[in-house]
């Protein structure tokens, strides 16, 4: 075992998850790698009250896109729609292509760098997906911003130092 491995294992503040990289949230407010899928929510370009729920599964790369009221996306034909393409683009910005490709077990080559490269490396077709669950996860995500600020110290957060890796 080398010294770096030992230091990592014996550090109380070893960095485990790289922080998300900053990106524009207006078009795709929510992206996550969870439940075996790249999934997220894409704002409709025409109706401010409508959002699309888009997802790509790691197993088999099946994809889907529908509104939050479970109506299928009109743009979804034999290929991923513009919402899925936007989801892939923003996921690559937020996590970096390596992490997304690893999660989706997608075989991208070393030159791949964009959401389009990621989509090109996928092999699946259209498949049903639990849009309602993804949408409720997005709503839960938003509720964090509704929680009040506290001025009582949280000593536990000393285990979570802020880092500069986001820059």
């Amino acid at each position: 075992m080398d010294a770096d491995t030992t230091a990592w294992e014996s550090s109380s503040v070893a960095r485990v998850v790289p922080p998300a990289r900053p990106r524009k949230l207006a078009k795709v407010p929510f992206v996550e790698l969870a439940e075996g899928r790249l999934q997220g929510v894409v704002s409709s370009g025409s109706d401010i009250d409508r959002v699309y729920v888009s997802s790509i599964a790691a197993a088999g790369h099946g994809y889907n896109c529908s509104t939050n009221n479970n109506r299928p996306c009109g743009g979804l034909g034999g290929a991923p729609c513009k919402h899925l393409r936007a989801l892939a683009d923003e996921a690559v910005l937020q996590y970096g292509i390596e992490r997304v490709a690893r999660y989706l077990r997608a075989d991208v080559d070393g030159a791949a760098s964009t959401g389009a490269d990621l989509i090109a490396a996928l092999s699946g077709g259209r498949e049903p997906a639990p849009a309602a669950i993804v949408f409720s996860r997005f709503l839960r995500h938003l509720t964090y911003l509704e929680l009040p600020v506290t001025t009582e110290p949280i000593p536990e957060l000393h285990w979570f130092p802020a880092t500069g890796a986001a820059r």
Binding site: A20, R23, Q94, Y144, T150, T151, E152, P153, I154, L157
Partner: peptide, 10 residues
């Protein structure tokens, strides 16, 4: 003295 907020990853 501290202030702490809940947030999301983005």
């Amino acid at each position: 003295t501290s202030v702490a907020a809940a947030k999301v990853d983005t």
